[in-house]
Computed example of a mutant assay.
Amino acid sequence: MMEPTPFTLAACAEMLFRGLPITERVKRIDALGFQVEIWDWSRHDLKSLAATGATFSSMTGYLEGTLADKDGAERLVETARASIAVAKELGIPRLNLHGTGLDGQGLPIKAGAEMTGPMWITAADTLNRLADLGQQHDVTFVLENLNTAVDHPGVPFARAEDVLALVASVDRPEVRIMLDLYHAQVGEGNLVELVRRCAPYTGEIQVADVPGRCEPGSGEIHYPAIARALNEIGYRGTVGLEGWASGDDELALARFRDAFTL
């Protein structure tokens, strides 16, 4: 008999059940037994989201800004403060970050894939400031790796290797990695070893298959092997489906659950 999943499973309401209003998407995901992820909270009716009674896993933790320049960092920290207030309202423990703000197409507001030494120092300082906020308000900021080959060209601090190095240099529990394995497969590969190396600093795992960014089982990644590796290293946190449905949304969620059931 198969054992239940040792992980907490979540799903992105921005990417599933897209024919429904966002609150109805949240209700459907919650009714199927998953926690719920959202992106830009400023686009949603927060009272309606709270009224669903769903458990939310994460959301975008800023509205504007960038990690690695002074003015951008000020704006990032400022909008992170506003995001914390929303997180408290919705009971969200993790606030997602990127190297820079993204537009509606996922492109960087301020491009700069080449990271200089001063940029690394400024980024680490910004994360330390966010860690101070996290400590004060009991939330965790998670820095997500992205891919620059397909979805997010020009984003700084995009590679998982760079995110790991930056988060490890800060080395504070209020700043962790949002390890997105879809993006890592597109840009870097070697996912099982990556999961193991990032383990001490991982705040949450996000998944989708390659190509297509749909649910596990729709592409080339053997997610049951990823699930076994996570279990072997003792990971007991959240695994979130941040992907589209290749067909029926409920079937996509069932395939996701199956991939992470040991």
Rank of each mutant, 00 (worst) to 15 (best):
R255N: 14
N145V: 09
V207L: 10
R81A: 13
L179R: 00
N147M: 05
M59C: 08
Q105E: 13
E250H: 05
D40E: 15
H98I: 00
E144N: 02
F56D: 06
A10E: 11
V195N: 00
D248L: 11
L90Q: 09
E24S: 14
D249G: 03
N96M: 15
W120Q: 06
E188W: 09
A80I: 03
L90T: 05
E144K: 05
A149S: 13
E220S: 15
V175D: 00
L251P: 00
G106K: 10
G134K: 02
T52P: 01
T79G: 07
R257T: 09
R159H: 11
L76I: 09
R196M: 11
A199P: 02
T122N: 13
V155Q: 08
W120G: 10
T122Q: 15
G99P: 01
Y62G: 04
R43H: 12
W39V: 05
L230S: 07
Y223L: 02
E78Y: 09
A208M: 03
L143C: 01
F141A: 06
R75L: 15
G243V: 04
P216G: 05
W41N: 06
S83Y: 09
L9Q: 06
E215M: 09
V195M: 05
D132C: 02
D171K: 09
L262H: 11
L179N: 01
T79C: 10
L16D: 09
S58L: 14
P200C: 07
V36M: 07
R18C: 14
R176Q: 14
T5G: 10
L16Y: 09
A10T: 06
V142G: 04
R213E: 07
S57V: 05
P108R: 08
L32Q: 12
N231R: 15
D103S: 12
I109R: 14
V186A: 07
N231P: 01
G247H: 13
W244H: 15
G117I: 13
I177V: 11
T238W: 12
C214P: 08
I205V: 14
D258F: 12
Y201M: 07
Q35M: 08
L76Q: 04
T116Y: 03
N145Y: 02
E24I: 04
T55S: 08
E3P: 04
M2H: 08
A225Y: 13
L107M: 14
F17A: 04
K27F: 07
V175G: 00
N145R: 03
V207F: 04
T140S: 04
V139W: 04
K70D: 14
L102F: 03
E37S: 11
R129F: 01
E37A: 06
A199C: 02
F17V: 07
R213Q: 07
E74L: 13
D69K: 04
V239Y: 06
D151F: 09
R257L: 12
T52Y: 01
T140K: 07
V150T: 09
G91W: 10
P6W: 06
A259D: 10
T100G: 00
L241Y: 05
E232P: 09
V77F: 05
A80L: 03
G219C: 11
L166F: 02
D171T: 00
V210L: 08
G237M: 13
G104F: 01
L102Y: 03
C214K: 12
I38E: 07
P156E: 12
G91E: 12
A113R: 10
A225L: 14
L143A: 07
H137R: 10
G240H: 06
F256V: 00
P200F: 04
A259V: 10
R176F: 03
T238V: 15
A54H: 02
F7R: 03
R196V: 10
